[in-house]
């Protein structure tokens, strides 16, 4: 009798199932909220720490100034235009290289490659994403730079093109794997219908599948762009970092990220310079935030269309 009671006791749940359910629900809800809170916290911190910068810096001259020199011998200058232009130049350059290459690779992997090739090639593309940025920057100095200076007959290879090439390499894995998913998700009836109408394989890929997967591909490119905008170490090492307004793709550039990385290590806390660097961070955060938001909206649209 006592044995049976003990067994019964063991089987009886020590907590009411309904409460348990609620606890588990709460646990996962809290997990979900952590990332939301982290995002809000980062935004709040950046904003709060940026605001004191504008006690001494005119916000107009911050956004439209052409000279950034907070440690000047003569007069401190806080103008972010050259850095915005630099960031834009290397990013656009990177996308010009990475988008055609990325979409081409994605189309090859999803529609042309034999299963065996795909099995080997896809993991290799994904490994590319795992190469540390400092290694890629190093390659920019010792490999890409000298090659570029020979091709373009410039004195050195520390320029915007170098940065673009390296960032393209870094953005490629994102673009390839998301585009490939998008192409895979195109209903096979589209492909079959196209082939049944007598279209060649190339016509089917270029005129049916890619347009059908376009919003997914655009989202992939936007995410790749977000990666390129925020990358620091690679551009810091490979682009020369001269603070002047960039004159051409063959000249040195200095992006928002490199300026923060160069100057934050030595800046005295709670000075205007310190706050100004946080303001740079805020600008950068807003740029990547909007890029990600737009890509999210596009992705969402694409999900609805295909449902």
């Amino acid at each position: 009798m006592t044995v049976v009671a003990a067994q019964y006791n063991r089987r009886r749940p020590w907590i009411n199932p309904k409460i348990k359910e609620k606890l588990i629900h709460g646990f996962f809800f809290a997990n979900g909220m952590i990332s939301v809170l982290a995002l809000l916290g980062i935004f709040a911190l950046l904003t709060m720490t940026s605001i004191p910068a504008f006690r001494e810096i005119n916000i107009g001259s911050f956004l439209t100034g052409f000279e950034w020199n907070p440690t000047s011998y003569v007069k401190e200058q806080y103008g972010i235009v050259p850095m915005l232009v630099s960031t834009l130049m290397v990013t656009v350059g990177a996308l010009l290289i990475a988008i055609p290459l990325g979409i081409g690779t994605a189309a090859y992997l999803s529609d042309v490659a034999s299963p065996k090739v795909r099995e080997i090639a896809k993991p290799i593309v994904e490994i590319l994403a795992g190469i540390p940025s400092v290694v890629i920057g190093f390659l920019g100095i010792v490999l890409v730079g000298p090659i570029l200076s020979k091709i373009f007959h410039t004195h050195n290879g520390l320029n915007a093109i170098n940065g673009s090439v390296l960032l393209a390499v870094m953005a490629l894995p994102t673009i390839i794997s998301i585009s490939e998913d998008a192409l895979k998700n195109v209903p096979s009836s589209y492909e079959q219908a196209s082939l049944a109408l007598g279209a060649s394989k190339w016509q089917t890929i270029a005129r049916v599948k890619i347009p059908a997967a376009l919003s997914g591909i655009i989202a992939a490119c936007m995410l790749g762009m977000g990666r390129a905008v925020g990358e620091t170490m690679t551009v810091l090492m490979a682009t020369g970092c001269a603070p002047a307004m960039p004159k051409s793709m063959l000249g040195p550039v200095r992006t928002l990220t490199s300026s923060i990385a160069i100057e934050l290590g030595e800046v005295a806390y709670n000075t205007t310079h310190y706050y100004a660097l946080f303001a740079l961070g805020l600008v950068l955060f807003l740029i990547t935030f909007f890029i990600n938001m737009i890509s999210d909206i596009i992705l969402h649209k694409y999900e609805k269309v295909n449902r």
């Binding site: 011998y73 730079g145 050195n156 001269a242 603070p243 002047a244």
Partner: peptide
Amino acid sequence: ILKGDYSQNMNRMNGNAQIVEAVKQDVSG
């Protein structure tokens, strides 16, 4: 030496060794 600001066009390198490498490769450097 400068007693003024560096040219905005000066490349900002990440250490002595990088400057040595860059100048070795650049005849105008």
